[in-house]
């Protein structure tokens, strides 16, 4: 199966985001590189707004992800509540 990934800068803003992704995607693998965290997952990876908000204790707009995003791979399906990366093969 093809791997999708998302990579963020390592900082205080992304810590809760990464924790949320790890919890919502039990099949994901976390790779830490200098100043960067890359999360790989087979086939599909979901980022849920509600999980991030729970950790932040405030409202979160998924477009805020862009501020600390480094790279990603996969087709994107996004709405207000979730951001999904997927390879359809």
């Amino acid at each position: 199966m093809s791997t999708v990934f998302i990579a963020f800068q390592t900082n205080e803003e992304t810590r809760p985001i990464i924790e949320a992704i790890v919890e919502d995607n039990p099949h994901a693998r976390v790779n830490e590189a200098p100043a960067m965290v890359k999360i790989d997952a087979d086939g599909r990876l979901i980022v849920k707004r509600s999980s991030i908000e729970e950790r932040l204790g405030r409202e979160f707009d998924l477009q805020e992800l862009h501020v600390n995003l480094i790279s990603l791979s996969g087709n994107i399906e996004e709405d207000e509540d979730q951001f999904v990366l997927v390879w359809k093969n």
């Binding site: 960067m36 862009h66 995003l69 480094i70 790279s71 990603l72």
Partner: peptide, 17 residues
């Protein structure tokens, strides 16, 4: 360099898409 590199890269996800 890390700062401008990552700052540029944060736009890259949109460019790739």
């Amino acid at each position: 360099t890390m700062a401008y590199g990552f700052s540029a890269q944060s736009d890259e996800a949109r460019h790739m898409t």
